[in-house]
């Protein structure tokens, strides 16, 4: 609650050169960026195919090649820690952690919902960042503009669409919704509350805001080592949910 996202311009040391590789795979898009004190230097994004493990490392290699940066010049690995689609999200997390381990680098983890909200920081509306969690659910969080960034004013939640609209109605005021979850449930949201929707090209978390936000954190040395990084699932594994509500009949498989 009340977490500020951004604020890079406020009292950061200048001239410290740290190159950041950002990896983001929490939704159907994969996104890789390299950036630092001069901003985003390169960005590689593909939003169709759901071939995360096939595209991610070739994407990293391609980006390094085009930006003329050796992977060994990278000083920090940033990664989207979710919430998002579990399987895809883990592809990015596993790669980011392994890169940090092999290159002996610190890591910065940033939430997918923070990444959706940050590019909308010039709006004075309430920002609802909403990711499609599948199975009729959404992951969402609410943000307000603050100087240089946005501030999260709700918990990160896994909820149904009606929970989101009830939350927005209760808070009142003008709202802008962003994310693939907002676009998927556009009609259901508009049935309950009047909101604006951000552009489709902002609807997946991107590695561009990831490296921007991570750079600010890296300058403050606000980082973790690879085994301290915690993904945000916001939902228990199915078996644990099922186990809690019924006995017998488990979804488990035999060990091959």
């Amino acid at each position: 609650m009340g977490t500020t996202v951004g604020g890079a311009r406020n009292g950061c040391p200048q001239g410290v050169v740290v190159l950041i590789l950002g990896i983001e795979t929490a939704t159907e898009q994969i996104s890789v960026a390299i950036g630092g004190h001069e901003g985003v230097i390169g960005l590689f994004e593909v939003a169709r195919g759901r071939r995360h493990v096939e595209m991610l490392m070739p994407g990293v290699e391609f980006l390094c090649q085009q930006t003329d940066i050796e992977i060994t010049e990278i000083g920090c690995i940033a990664v989207d820690v979710g919430p998002g689609l579990f399987t895809g999200m883990r592809v990015g997390l596993a790669a980011a952690k392994a890169l940090a381990q092999a290159l002996h680098l610190p890591m910065v983890g940033i939430s997918s919902l923070d990444l959706l909200a940050f590019p909308l920081r010039y709006s004075d509306r309430l920002i609802a960042a909403v990711i499609d969690a599948r199975r009729g659910e959404l992951f969402y969080a609410l943000y307000l503009q603050v100087p240089g960034g946005v501030q999260r004013v709700s918990e990160l939640r896994a909820a149904r669409c009606e929970d989101l609209t009830a939350d927005l109605v209760a808070r009142g005021g003008e709202v802008v919704c962003v994310g693939d979850g907002a676009l998927r449930y556009r009609d259901e949201i508009l049935d309950e509350v009047r909101v604006e929707f951000a552009e489709q090209f902002l609807s997946h978390p991107s590695a561009a805001p990831l490296v921007t936000l991570a750079h600010a954190k890296a300058l403050r040395e606000d980082w973790v080592n690879p085994w301290e990084l915690q993904p945000m699932y916001l939902r228990k594994p199915d078996a644990q949910i099922n186990w809690a509500v019924r006995d017998g009949g488990s979804p488990a498989v035999s060990r091959p």
Binding site: H52, V53, L56, M57, V60, E61, I71, F86, T87, R90, V91, G92, A94, A95, A96, K97, A98, L99, Q101, A102, L103, V253
Partner: peptide, 18 residues
């Protein structure tokens, strides 16, 4: 298991590049 395999494969590719 696909989800389990992906963790190892993604990490191995990253180590290979690093």
């Amino acid at each position: 298991l696909i989800g389990a395999l992906l963790v190892g494969v993604s990490a191995a590719k990253a180590l290979s590049v690093a």
